[in-house]
Design a protein around this nucleic acid. Structure first.
Length: 796
DNA sequence: CTTGACCGGGG
DNA sequence: GTGTACGGTCAAG
């Protein structure tokens, strides 16, 4: 039988059993494997026979005197980096014994160290069997009783196979609405099922009234079951919705039997996060995937559902403020609006899921992690799981995770230099060409064979030495990392070519797009991984050498540009911005000149032409790095680093800055100044809507528990004195009023603010952000306020 | 400049 | 669960 495995787990109640859950077009299957034993490796101090004698002769026990049994051992040969070593593979009865046995063995004199004792058992199984969720496997086994599943199979053989068949997963998105710590609505959305469970009746036909919390929970479970849900989607459901659901379940005595086998939802603790695990279904919380994986590629500063959905799929939540929601619910206001809002939340979660689920699946396919893990792990952890797989298939032993102490030491090491950033001259420039290196760091690593296993080898005939540092990378044999990067980059290159054969709307295109995107994410993560203190394959030297060489290459490109008569405008890490007369005619010439000097695997690419670019300066007058704006021929703005794209400014300030930048890039400085003056005038004459002045911040605890003074805390305290109920975890919006000395004193929640301090908004919000742009053209604070004469502007 | 507190998403 | 994992920003010191 062929199927795709999507969940894995194990139990020890009736002997050790690995449980796999898989699906094909016929249905969902449960597969049991009782033939896989947990193991780890012991590396002999020098003499493997001594170690084996110890294993045979000695009795092992824990510190508490509990007997430990080695059920089997094998002498094997493995690779430690590029070096062959002897290792003894030690098998235990159950996974929980692995850690104990490891401690017992590591204390022997005949053992130098132990390895691969800290890989979760279900992941170990998937790695060793080469099972990749999202890919097909072929299984042989004996069919048992069915029960909750199509079939239960006792596994005899499992192997990965190629299969193009597309599987259809049943997705269901859900969302809770909670008021006064009670679930008042639960909404569900899929292609052919939309429903809102509500404690209060509305006239809408998608709303089903439930009597109380208990009934709501029971219906919740039924709905998940009735939809034969494979994928349960939500946004921040790990940390919010399932918390509430579990509390409610505890209070009402309802069991949250959401698993396909009726098993209860369980929280997996993982550091400071938890994950709501539902057996034999995939509960995918999109929020952690967005924060860990997608965020770097998003423009949005905040990662709330509304902004993420807006950017990724062009959809927004219904507009309904938290205050209004409470009002509606408590006073039986417009409940239809409330219910519609609830359903809309599930709808956009579902549609966000349509986009992210295939990405998560592709990432699972490469890393071999179950989708539950893929959507919750950080970049470094995804990379590491990929490395564990690739190491296994190359017979390379994984390094151990660093101890806390080692980790701290790594984190405290002196930071190494990063990318090269060119200091721009402030000003407004016409016609700017942007170039960048295709995957700079990955290609540098491949070109120079930079890898933890090529670093400072004892035996090596061809060493690549870096003068600046006292280490070298051996060129004799391709290293682990360069090999992986080269494979990923080459495979991606092929996919990108193949992609061109399909139209962008087609399913084929989307599949290939997602696959190459997953490869890109992984290839780009290796450099960061090498410098990440928690990494098994941490190699500060490799990371340092990579950025060093990156800096050399970009500086070489700049030198070539200057020799060819280009005017260097700006550059950051892997990109350069250049100007020249008859610019377009010289683009290819420049590309050829740079690329002919580069190693084969590296390439400088033309990114685009912008009709204007604007650069500003720091207080000192020196050009500011990482803060610029570009405009193309279609008047599209690309703004980097300005307050406009940051969240900790009031709307009035951000709006003004964006308008100013727009006008400046359209080369209408006067209009830009007018924008500022108009805004100041409006502020002074109190015409500005309070909505534009609100500053939002979240309180994470009761205001009096804060040790430090901060405007939002002080505003909340004042509101509390007036009898306002301020709950922890609440977002407050405040305005700076006229009463008080410090800014914190002046801060009041918007609803209590009768005035606003126009001076604050002019001096601390609008003027600073506007000046960031306009000082470049010689304007001063006084001039923007209309106090000074506009003299001395002749230079522009 | 360093250290330590705070914050994120959700309603 | 072969567990117990963030990273950036800001104010105070």
């Amino acid at each position: 039988m062929r199927l795709q495995i999507f969940d894995a787990d194990y139990t020890t109640s009736e002997g050790l059993e690995v449980k796999l859950f898989g699906k094909n077009s016929e249905g969902v299957y449960k597969i049991k494997d009782t033939n896989f034993k947990p193991y780890f490796y012991a590396i002999p101090d020098n003499d493997v026979t001594k170690l084996i004698e110890d294993i045979e002769d000695k009795d092992f026990e824990t510190e508490d005197g509990e007997k430990l049994e080695i059920v089997e051992f094998q002498k094997t040969e493995r690779k430690d980096g590029q070096k062959k070593i002897e290792a003894v593979k030690i098998f235990a009865d159950i996974p929980a014994d692995i850690s104990k046995l490891k401690n017992a063995l590591w204390s022997l004199e005949s053992v130098e160290e132990c390895r691969e004792f800290d890989i979760p058992f279900y992941r170990r199984y998937l790695i060793d069997k080469n099972i990749r969720p999202g890919s097909w496997v072929e299984i042989e086994g004996v069919e048992k009783n069915s029960g909750d599943f199509k079939k239960v199979i006792e596994l005899e053989e499992i192997k990965a196979v190629d299969n193009d068949e597309k599987l259809n997963w049943n997705s269901l998105a859900f969302d809770l609405e909670v008021i006064d710590e009670k679930v008042v609505m639960a909404s569900f959305y899929s292609e052919d099922f939309q429903k809102v469970l509500s404690i209060k009746q509305t006239k809408q036909d998608f709303v089903e009234k439930v009597e109380n919390q208990e009934e709501l929970l029971k219906r919740f479970i039924e709905i998940v079951e009735e939809n034969n849900t494979d994928i349960l989607l939500g946004y921040n459901t790990d940390e919010f919705d399932f918390d509430i659901l579990r509390e409610t379940a505890d209070q009402t005595g309802v069991k949250l039997n959401l698993g396909r086998n009726g098993e209860r939802m369980k929280f997996n603790r993982r550091g400071r996060f938890k994950g709501a695990r539902i057996k034999a279904r995939m509960h995918l919380d999109i929020y952690p995937f967005v924060t860990h994986v997608l965020a770097p590629g998003l423009d949005s500063e905040t990662l709330d559902l509304d902004s993420v959905a807006e950017e990724m799929i062009g959809l927004n939540k219904d507009e309904l403020e938290w205050g209004e929601m409470k009002q509606i619910w408590r006073n039986d206001g417009d409940l239809e609006k409330f219910a519609k809002y609830a359903l809309k939340d599930s709808e956009i979660t579902y549609k966000l899921g349509e986009q992210t689920t295939p990405q998560i699946m592709e990432m699972s396919k490469i890393t071999g992690l179950i989708p539950f893990d893929t959507c919750r792990l950080t970049y470094g952890q995804l990379t590491e799981n990929y490395l564990l797989r690739e190491a296994y298939s190359r017979n390379i032993l994984a390094n151990n995770r660093p101890s806390q102490k080692k980790r701290r030491n790594r984190d405290q090491e002196q930071a190494y230099a990063g990318g090269f950033v060119y200091t721009p001259e402030e000003g407004l420039y016409e016609n700017v060409a942007v170039f960048d290196f295709r995957s700079l760091y990955p290609t540098v690593m491949v070109s120079h064979n930079i890898s933890p296993d090529t670093l400072n080898l004892e035996e090596c005939s061809d060493r690549f030495e870096l003068e600046e540092f006292d280490y070298d990378f051996c060129q004799d044999q391709q290293g682990f990392f360069p090999e992986l990067v080269e494979d990923l980059v080459s495979s991606r290159y092929k996919l990108k070519k193949e992609m061109k054969n399909y139209c962008e709307e087609s399913q084929e295109f989307k599949n290939i797009y997602n696959r190459q995107q997953a490869q890109k994410i992984l290839a780009n993560s290796f450099y960061g991984y090498l410098g990440y203190g928690g990494a098994r394959w941490y190699s500060r030297e490799s990371a340092e050498a990579t950025t060093y060489l990156g800096r050399e290459y970009i500086k070489d490109a700049i030198q070539i540009a200057e020799e060819m008569g280009f005017e260097m405008t700006y550059g950051d890490t892997d990109s350069v911005m250049l100007r020249k007369d008859d610019l377009e005619e010289h683009l290819d010439e420049f590309l050829d000149a740079v690329n002919s000097e580069l190693p084969d695997f590296m390439e400088l690419e033309f990114e685009g032409l912008f009709k204007r670019g604007f650069f500003t300066s720091k207080e000192s007058g020196e050009g500011a790095k990482k803060k610029y704006a570009l405009i193309d021929d279609e008047n599209n703005l690309k703004i980097t680093g300005f307050e406009q794209v940051r969240r900790d400014w009031s709307p009035i300030a951000k709006d003004t800055q964006e308008k100013v930048l727009q006008k400046v890039l359209e080369n209408d400085i006067d209009a830009a100044v007018e924008e500022v003056k108009d805004t100041i005038k409006a502020l002074k004459s109190r015409e500005v809507d309070v909505e534009k002045l609100k500053i939002y911040t979240t309180l994470t605890k009761p205001p009096e528990e804060y040790a430090n003074t901060a405007p939002h805390v002080e505003a909340a305290k004042k509101a509390k004195e007036k009898g306002e109920e301020i709950k922890p975890e609440s977002t407050v919006d405040y305005v700076i009023t006229r009463r008080g000395k410090s800014i914190s004193e002046k801060a009041k929640l918007t609803k209590y603010a009768e005035t606003y301090d126009s001076d604050y908004y002019v001096d601390n919000q609008v003027i600073p952000v506007a000046l960031r742009v306009l000082k470049v053209f010689g304007y001063t604070e006084d001039e923007l306020k209309g106090k000074g004469r506009q003299s001395g502007l002749g230079q522009f």
